[in-house]
Amino acid sequence: MTTAILLLAFVTLERLAELVLARRNTRALLAQGAVEHAPGHYPLIVVMHALWLAGLWVFGASQPVSVFWFGVFVLLQAARIWVLMTLGPRWTTRIIVLPGAPLVAKGPYRFVSHPNYLVVIGEIAVLPLCFGLWWFAVIFSIANAVILSIRIRAEATALAGAPP
């Protein structure tokens, strides 16, 4: 098995595990009275990420892996874990707001409002660069920017009433 295939297998399994975790957290939050906001854009996120990952398998699986970009990717994974651990049971892939719950202000949220999105922005660009696919990184970074512009506005609106 090549390094590229191992890396892609890791990312695929990571994403599947995150979907399971997100689904579990979403169900638990909804059971506590949380409300989902702006679900209309969610299918765009799912399709974009699925196409990104499928495209990486098609174009990247046979490519050598850049040690530099792989190192950057590993740092992004550390940041991803920090975000997930900070949010704990409040982390989901959807915009789920628990009324009355304060905004998270610890961990990476002490420094930036949307650290998870910064990690995703990095991953969308860096993983293709691991395989030398700069054009792929550009295309999906643009698509991701468009979707995140919708997502971040919707999330800011949903969280506007949350206590600090």
Rank of each mutant, 00 (worst) to 15 (best):
L13H: 13
V119A: 01
W52E: 06
L84P: 01
V119W: 00
W91F: 15
V120D: 05
I142E: 06
R15E: 05
V126M: 09
N116L: 05
T86S: 15
G71N: 07
V47K: 06
A4E: 06
I45V: 14
L127S: 00
V119G: 02
F111T: 07
L103I: 10
R23K: 09
A101I: 08
L51H: 03
V67C: 03
G107S: 02
W57S: 03
F136G: 01
M85P: 09
G107W: 02
P102I: 09
A78D: 09
A61M: 11
R90S: 13
K106W: 12
R80Y: 05
G33Q: 08
W52N: 12
L8N: 00
A4P: 03
H37E: 04
L29W: 02
T93A: 11
A4H: 10
E14V: 12
H114A: 14
R15M: 11
V97C: 05
A79V: 04
L56C: 10
L8K: 00
L103W: 06
A31C: 01
V47P: 00
I142M: 10
H49R: 08
T86F: 07
A78H: 04
C130E: 01
V120H: 09
I45L: 14
L44P: 15
G107L: 01
A17S: 07
W135C: 00
L16A: 15
L84E: 10
L87Q: 08
V74S: 04
G100C: 08
F68Y: 04
N25I: 08
G40M: 10
H49I: 04
V11N: 06
L53H: 01
S66I: 00
F140D: 03
L19C: 12
V58F: 05
C130Q: 08
V58Y: 00
V119F: 01
R27G: 13
A31D: 08
I95L: 06
I124G: 10
L13V: 15
V126R: 00
A137C: 04
P115K: 06
A105I: 13
I45P: 10
T26W: 13
L21F: 14
P43E: 07
Q77P: 07
L56W: 02
S62F: 03
L6F: 00
R23N: 15
I96S: 02
V58I: 11
I96C: 14
A78N: 08
R27P: 13
P108K: 11
